[in-house]
Design a protein around this nucleic acid. Structure first.
Lengths: 147, 147
DNA sequence: TCGGACTATATCGCGCGCGACTGAAACGCA
DNA sequence: TGCGTTTCAGTCGCGCGCGATATAGTCCGA
């Protein structure tokens, strides 16, 4: 009557995410980055100087995860954290020269990961959209279980 | 030149896995289980008395994760851990009555999660297979990067 | 303008994952 | 038989995620 982990949608997701991070490891280790740190940089390369909260919205993380993570990145010399002069509540996260310079390596990382997936760019985009849809549905059903 | 997290396949996976665990939370909290603990039980419901290593192969986890996890489950009265009488190196993990009894709730959990995905069983199975393929490819490319 | 509500970030505790290492038991071969 | 090798589990350290809580800054209405 029970289902084996391997037959569950949830487990495929769980395992694929771990395999994804494992695949990134050899690509990111030379840069001294963890995967979540790479995500933060990716967000800042698009839009530097975001607040902690804005980063959290982009990445789906709360400050309890982001604050220590950003402090480690600051200690590594990748970003600066400074209180906003206008609104002292918010903290602006900006790239250092070192953080900005890593963008030059990003293309190599992306190509390496795409190669590891064995997918064409179109296939990868299609699967990405399917999974993103699943995420959206799950999030919606969790945050608003009524109706 | 850079890609936003939302446009990356890896990020959709990362976010979907978090949304998946969040969707499971209201289903598993009443049972006093975390998601990895639910996976362990699922594996034991199929095949009770597995060794720690066998569980690790099934779930893609090593003993550094499993041993503390299983100890917590033992403390919660869900499983027993006993050295194999024949081979004293391996540890057999067996369900307690309490752990076995939870299988009765599993169907409710499964239905609740499927509903949260908004997918039909066929759609869920199809997506599961696609994601499992991705996982297999990623794992293969990571463990054997030569050739 | 003053006080309460709201907002943004930070802190704490705990459960994973995982790399690196340790130690004990079983195996295999000289 | 004895010793090196292999196998299995456990331990340690650290970086996430996240629920719960704290604190400081801002806003808004009486």
């Amino acid at each position: 009557m029970s289902l084996a982990p391997a037959d569950m949608l949830c487990f495929s997701l769980y395992g694929a995410q771990q395999a994804m991070q494992a695949a990134y490891k050899p690509l990111l280790d030379p840069l001294g980055l963890t995967y979540p740190q790479y995500l933060v940089l990716s967000a800042l390369w698009i839009d530097d100087g975001q607040s902690v909260g804005a980063l959290g919205t982009t990445l789906g993380l709360d400050t309890n995860t982001l604050t220590p993570l950003l402090k480690r990145m600051q200690a590594a010399g990748l970003v600066d954290r400074r209180r906003d002069a206008v609104d002292e509540r918010s903290v602006r996260v900006t790239l250092t020269d070192r953080g900005r310079a890593l963008e030059a390596q990003a293309e190599t990382v992306r190509r390496g990961f795409l190669k590891a997936t064995g997918l064409s760019p179109d296939q990868a985009a299609a699967l990405r959209d399917r999974i993103a849809d699943l995420r959206a549905t799950l999030t919606a059903s969790t945050t608003a279980p009524r109706c």
